[in-house]
Design a protein around this nucleic acid. Sequence first.
DNA 1: TCGATAATTTTACTATTATAGAAATATGGA
DNA 2: TCCATATTTCTATAATAGTAAAATTATCGA
Lengths: 105, 105
Amino acid sequence: MEVKTAVTALTALAQESRLRVFRLLVRAGSDGQPAGEIADSLDIPPATLTFHLKELSHAGLIDSTREGRSIRYSIREQGVCELLTYLLQDCCNGQPELCGSKRKK
Amino acid sequence: MEVKTAVTALTALAQESRLRVFRLLVRAGSDGQPAGEIADSLDIPPATLTFHLKELSHAGLIDSTREGRSIRYSIREQGVCELLTYLLQDCCNGQPELCGSKRKK
DNA sequence: TCGATAATTTTACTATTATAGAAATATGGA
DNA sequence: TCCATATTTCTATAATAGTAAAATTATCGA
């Protein structure tokens, strides 16, 4: 992964509304959630949410598929994984987990 | 962890110079590196580097200790760990590793 | 205490990002 | 086709962040 790619992904996450969307989608699992539900859950105006969803999407952190009148968004596991790998590369004397055993469920 | 804390940490990482510093320090391990060396390695002017180190420091991602005329910076494992935990909370049906097995050394 | 070196603070300028109303577009049902 | 619903695009304004030169502070050795 290139520095700029990682910066794009981190910039996408470094904003309260987007981080809340991201975490909501992490919890939602692979089914994800339609834009309208996300807007309602997090109380974000539709136009604003669209702006943020696009940021997360361009950053490769979420996917979307149309489903009738709605568009369903979900976490893009690969993107998240690549980012974490990049962040922790060469850490901990070759053991890639910085804190695997301490991490809560 | 609170949303704002996580946003602060992610904002700190979401910038090319700071991400390069962060990754350099990840590689450096617990010994860390003095500011001057970091500035030389990454070709960043001292005043600019100080600004970025402060951001990383306020975000709880790095520590510093004076060592003679130099100040040595190093990764703050706990801060990094808490951030990752927050990001991936409740993911993967209770398995906290999003991509543990796929992560490169 | 003086000079040299290391890092920080101050400051000003530039650039980027967030927000959300209003209008536009896309879909499905009557 | 026409209407209601879901989301996006356009747009303008407000707020935040990045850069780095110049001056300042801290430490060490002579």
